[in-house]
Design a binder for these strands. Structure first.
Lengths: 173, 173
DNA sequence: TATTGTTATACTCTATAACTATA
DNA sequence: TATAGTTATAGAGTATAACAATA
């Protein structure tokens, strides 16, 4: 039951990330004091997440894909033939909410629902050729624009460390 | 204009965070392959953010405060007398949406709107005694339960590094 | 004319109950 | 009876336009 909680060792200091350089926090009028907010992990987590999703949308805007849609296509590619419940559960999407989402992707001919022969209740999900092509283009845009930008801002080692810590929180917290 | 993007230096490896230890990713039936999703920063960011907010709500459930409400109270405490536009802008809340939120806090007598003498259009916001007391209790709960838990999972040094990277993204990205 | 707080409104996300068709 | 997909619905969160009071 959620083992290992105390497996951290050292954590030598990371890259020198710039801090309070510009001080133009809020532009014009005397910026407000953030107080303990600066130390609230959840607050920074939320603000960072919004920025990252915003940039994601910009980077793949030509393909009209949201982060959620991208994650669904990716999962279909890596796990062809899985049903709606399996894909939705893996992504933390509730089954009722997954229906409209799939309708959208299917109407754009990016994926297909195929009634299973073994269990006629379930739909085997799979990408269409167009879906595979769109996903491939999305991956390229994300790698060369989106994640590359994050590497610029953080540095590759920091980016990797950040990813690992976030995965740890998502898994063990 | 968003200076310093290439200020990263090293980033020696962090603590040994446990990985693929249990492998019980999805319980029963053969877990799905996550593919490139494991390397998508936005995905881990979102999942981690949900977990952290969930825990925040648990930790302060006795006070019935959401992360957003807590951040508003905190800002009022550190910046008494500021108006709605200033508080809302600082937190990235749109003014129209801030109205109902303030109504809720004010009806619980945690804060007050006081018409400004100098500019009768604006409301000076301030905590009530009850608001200050509630905020103090919330801070204690968050420090001893919520953030303490994060320290357990990540280790203090990792937690600090994570916080700094998230702030960097929120600021420079 | 511009700004503060506000209303109305709409759109997305998320969440729950209940239906249908299969098993 | 239990499960997969679905419908309906309700509640947050977020977004924009426009209005009244005030500057």
């Amino acid at each position: 039951m959620t083992a290992h909680k105390t497996t951290q060792l050292d954590a030598s200091r990371l890259a020198r990330l710039p801090r309070e350089v510009a001080m133009d926090d809020d532009a014009e009028a005397s910026a407000l004091k953030m107080g303990e907010l600066s130390d609230l992990l959840g607050y920074s987590l939320k603000r960072a997440q919004l920025k990252v999703f915003e940039d994601f949308l910009r980077c793949v805007s030509s393909l009209q894909l949201t982060p959620a849609q991208f994650s669904v296509l990716l999962l279909m590619e890596k796990n062809p033939g899985r049903n709606q419940t399996e894909i939705a559960n893996t992504l933390g999407i509730l089954r009722p909410n997954f229906v409209a989402m799939l309708d959208g992707l299917e109407s754009r001919e990016l994926c297909m629902r195929v009634r299973s022969a073994h269990d006629r209740r379930s739909h085997n999900l799979m990408l269409t050729d167009k879906g595979r092509a769109t996903l491939a283009r999305a991956k390229k845009l994300i790698a060369t624009k989106h994640e590359a930008r994050l590497n610029e801002v953080l540095g590759p080692a920091n980016r990797a460390a950040l990813l690992e810590m976030l995965a740890t929180i998502a898994r063990d917290f």
